[in-house]
Design a protein around this nucleic acid. Structure first.
Lengths: 305, 305
DNA sequence: TTTAGGACTAAAGATAAACTTTAGCGATGG
DNA sequence: CCATCGCTAAAGTTTATCTTTAGTCCTAAA
């Protein structure tokens, strides 16, 4: 019996072949490409032969590796089943406290894909400020604001309205299109300097000179956005919260994308110190960071149009 | 795709089940039982559940582990095939320089079992002092003598002779059984204080008062032992070199086992600094240490009779 | 042809993992 | 009852592994 050594190196080699590049393998493993390269090199040095051919069409196994590749792939496929099996058997609940609008409009719609992949992980999601005291510190906390916690992404704020409303302002004063139009607000925009709204938007881009804070103030973004979809009025809100609506056309941006306000603060992630030892929490947080990165990319993409 | 973590822990768990104890798993892995225990505990803490039941009849998998065990065993069986495949493809030569008698009489007979298991490893074995200069430092060196190199085992020296000779001394003087008997010597015993022979043996145990260094002196033990088998005479030599002959009865020890001399020096192992990075050298050296330990045990066993 | 960007790598330094050692506990067998 | 063996916790040491920095090479686009 030969005791297998260089387990991490073997994993790196198998993943590099599977993903096609050291960079993709690094992303999958959550380490840097340099670290993956070092793992591969360490095994190659130990064996005294190359395992990967680095070529213009990506990575290919050398003939030596080719002979062992089926077993290598079988091994890590089996280990992935082991890992899933061992983790699956422990139904695990993750306690999340988050900015309520963000949780309801950004996290919840996306969470279904995570739940599908991890049915044994349950979520208990509360809005900031209304957590039952008996629960203690949550595993994961996502807040909008300053601080030293890890930034997830920074939103941009821009006007949105129902699909019919752009016609209303097209028939209006060509300079003061928003003069007299029905404005909708979030209470946070009135109460906090960190939450820009119409007042800040008009100051920077014009389109209206009187009554910038006139109109209905909503506690929750969901209700405000329901009104927006009904063509009730115009709202300045975070782009990340309405990406799907914009894509679907149920909500539209009546002004050029460049006329936006960068949010003064990002959404930030904090973990309870021990929580990140649990594999389920690690899985969720890795997924969350991926989704946040995707949202950042989509925001940049939207702004570039 | 779930990136597998705790690879060494998974290996420890699989081996512990396979070998039946943490200690056996530690021996197989070349680490301490404490280290194996820590690996297992680390994975159990990470998952939040036990994997091994520690009981009076050894280790058993918990129900949780039981569900994943087939995949786990398949994974490491495949990885062992990978390891063997990758190493097998590189025919490798190991350069050995050793005490000539030891190499010829102790190592060579045992090496066939190693060669069988590792047909891709070739050996180039030279006696100390007659190594072709072009080879440079050998990978492995085994010498008899003092120094700081790792001791393999310490031999004991005792008289041996052919199967018929004990009758010759039984019919002789009851106190000076060896008086006048034909003595055989190794030249090293005449030339070096580190190689005890008849002179030292008679000084300590008696049986002869005149001519302790009379008789034929052989350069190599093999030729001396051929003469011993032919009942030509009596020789004092290292027990490790004649264990098989003693077991077979082709050579006998005519005096009680307790009448032996411990060798002043052990056989010592030295590796060229880089050589131990090569897996083939590591395999060989691990095997060598195992064989040396076995010889030590057999010597102790022989002396206890 | 030049420039910019992406992937990979070597080397150095920092951090985390992993090992050994020590001391002790519990169980078992003589 | 005592000795031995297997296991474990804790502390300290050593090794592995990672990140960062700086650079190279290749490819694609201008």
């Amino acid at each position: 019996m030969v005791a297998v050594t260089h387990l991490k190196s073997l994993q790196a080699v198998e993943l590099a072949i599977r993903m096609g590049s050291l960079k993709e393998a690094a992303d999958a493993l959550g380490i840097t490409p340099a670290a993956v390269g070092q793992r591969v090199r360490a095994l190659e040095d130990f064996l005294g032969s190359d395992l990967l051919l680095r070529g213009r069409s990506g990575l290919k196994p050398t003939p030596e590796l080719e002979q062992a590749l089926a077993d290598l792939q079988m091994a890590f496929a089996a280990l992935e089943r082991v890992t899933s099996s061992l983790e699956f058997q422990r139904v695990s609940e993750i306690q999340i406290v988050a900015d309520p609008d963000w949780a309801e409009l950004w996290l919840a719609p996306r969470l279904s894909s995570f739940r599908e992949a991890h049915p044994n992980i349950l979520f208990c999601i509360n809005g900031s400020g209304d957590v039952p005291l008996r629960l203690g510190a949550p595993d994961v906390r996502v807040d909008y604001g300053d601080g030293r916690d890890e930034p997830l992404f920074t939103d941009v704020l821009l006007p949105v309205t129902g699909p019919d409303n752009p016609r209303r302002i097209a028939d209006w004063d060509p300079v003061l299109q928003m003069e007299g139009m029905p404005l909708l607000h979030l209470k946070a925009q009135r109460d906090s300097d960190d939450h820009p709204g119409w007042v800040e938007w008009f100051q920077q881009f014009g389109h209206r000179e009187t009554g910038p804070n006139r109109g209905v103030h909503y506690q929750h973004a969901r209700l405000a956005l329901e009104a927006v979809r009904e063509n009730v009025g115009f709202l300045v809100c975070g782009l990340s919260l309405v990406l799907n609506d914009l894509r679907d056309g149920t909500i539209v941006n009546p002004f050029p994308a460049a006329q936006n306000l960068t949010a003064p603060q990002p959404y930030r992630l904090a973990l309870r110190p021990d929580a990140d030892k649990r594999p389920q929490v690690q899985r969720f947080v890795a997924w969350l960071r991926t989704q946040a990165h995707e949202t950042h990319r989509e925001i940049q993409e939207f702004l570039a149009t």
